[in-house]
Design a protein around this nucleic acid. Structure first.
Lengths: 157, 157
DNA sequence: TATTGTTATACTCTATAACTATA
DNA sequence: TATAGTTATAGAGTATAACAATA
């Protein structure tokens, strides 16, 4: 290994000069690692990250419409259709036509859906703890705060 | 908007109780935002994030083999094939068979490849600065350090 | 005319297995 | 037999346009 690289490369540290100074690259690497554990934890319930976040939002906002859900999760409406359709097909959620505006569908969890999301939230917290085992409690809180600053800052147009 | 949600939801803050306490969710949101600007900046050169990182590594490690590149970027070997093949097809890189081990191919940048990566590195730094405009220099450095701690920590098996 | 949800589509990313050529 | 690279393939994620029902 490293036969061709050793004699010509300037780096033996496992770091490149620029990649590890870029937030985008560091964010991607960190996210890949955290998601890997998360997906592993959810595998038993066949729940993908996007489905998990949808379940959690519906639990906290019963009757949320699909367009609201799309906005809240920062995903496109067509994705929400499939997402919710699958949850409904599996008996975890139902769509109820809104009486006031019959174009809208409010989403509610079923009893099994409530039970599932309770379990999944516990698993997600455990997975998150594993992923951040190298961080102190202060560091973890600080990281969260900085990440929110990134994605809450409106982009300059 | 919010017709069905308003009267039943417990959250009016734009935050859910648990999602914003999860590193995985915050990482995904932040990464989406940073990548959006990055991809926009690279669009003119038709370079995807993975190709950019490959170019940078090859520049810093001339003659790196494809398997080394896969390991360095934490991606699977089959992805590297397409990645490098495309760069070679467009004249930015060449694959040279290694004399010592004729199974290996060392990757080198061409002159146009060197010129391209110089431009792209500048663009990437500018994009990163835009994405972290809400952060001070100290915060940005701290965030990078915390992210590296996440993805450098070996996973507990 | 505008909006909600939907369908269809296509393109990328990602992962896996299986093949080849070299060792 | 083991490894580097490759091929093929399939699944998931993502984005867009266009349509139906409703407002």
């Amino acid at each position: 290994m490293q036969q061709m690289g050793d004699d010509q490369s300037g780096s033996e540290t496992g770091r490149t000069l620029i990649l590890d100074e870029l937030l985008g690259y560091a964010l991607r690497r960190a996210q890949l690692k955290v998601f890997k554990d998360f997906e592993e934890a959810m595998r038993e319930y066949a729940i993908r990250p996007a489905q998990f976040s949808a379940l959690v939002v519906v639990e906290e906002m019963p009757g949320v419409t699909q367009s609201e859900l799309a906005q809240r999760l920062a995903i496109d409406p067509p994705r929400v259709v499939n997402l919710v359709h699958d949850l409904e097909k599996r008996g975890y959620a139902v769509r109820v036509r809104c009486k006031r505006d019959r174009r809208s569908h409010g989403i509610f969890l079923t009893k099994p859906g409530e039970a599932l999301v309770t379990t999944l939230k516990r698993l997600s917290v455990e997975s998150d703890a594993r992923a951040s085992v190298g961080l102190s409690e202060d560091e973890r809180a600080h990281l969260l705060r900085l990440l929110r600053k990134i994605y809450d800052t409106p982009e300059a147009p």
